[in-house]
């Protein structure tokens, strides 16, 4: 790819939009230098971050807004998912495997984001919201570091 491409989406916090986020990310990945497994991985990661915004950030209320920013560049794909929901009390603890504040949940979301992406940063403030930034390096970028 020659040009940097940034796409911004703003959508209400309803579960239907998790699939929408995957489709947009999947479409952007299709034109990039990634393996099929990479594409699967990034789709799971974005699905997790957007699901968390809807489910935890806005506690399943549909009147919140989720902001998704995707930037494709030769080095890779950056995804930012933001919500202005309840925030996370202890980010480090929230990212531990099997930690969940909901009884029927597994606490796998952050584990998937971490293992499927090359970078994961979480900023959160209680009562203000959460910002998840993830990056997946392209094959070209991986070759360059070797």
């Amino acid at each position: 790819m020659k040009h940097k491409n940034t796409v911004k989406l703003e959508f209400p916090s309803i579960p239907d939009n998790v699939a929408l986020a995957r489709v947009v990310v999947g479409t952007m990945l299709a034109n990039m230098d990634f393996t099929l497994t990479d594409v699967d991985d990034v789709k799971v990661a974005v699905s997790e971050a957007v699901s968390n915004a809807v489910l935890h950030g806005y506690q399943n209320r549909s009147n919140g807004l989720v902001y998704l920013t995707i930037t494709a560049e030769p080095q890779g794909l950056e995804i930012i998912v933001e919500d202005y929901g309840r925030g996370i009390q202890d980010v480090e603890k929230a990212m531990e495997p099997a930690f969940s504040t909901l009884p029927e949940r597994m606490g796998m979301g952050f584990v998937f984001m971490k293992s499927f992406m090359d970078k994961l940063e979480v900023d959160s403030q209680v009562g203000r919201g959460t910002r998840v930034r993830m990056f997946k390096a392209s094959l070209q970028a991986m070759r360059a570091v070797q």
């Binding site: 789709k43 799971v44 699905s47 997790e48 029927e104 949940r105 597994m106 796998m108």
Partner: peptide, 13 residues
């Protein structure tokens, strides 16, 4: 054709 942690939680439940 796709599963994430929500699907995993559903099956495990």
């Amino acid at each position: 054709d796709f599963i994430d942690s929500s699907g995993i939680g559903f099956i495990l439940g």
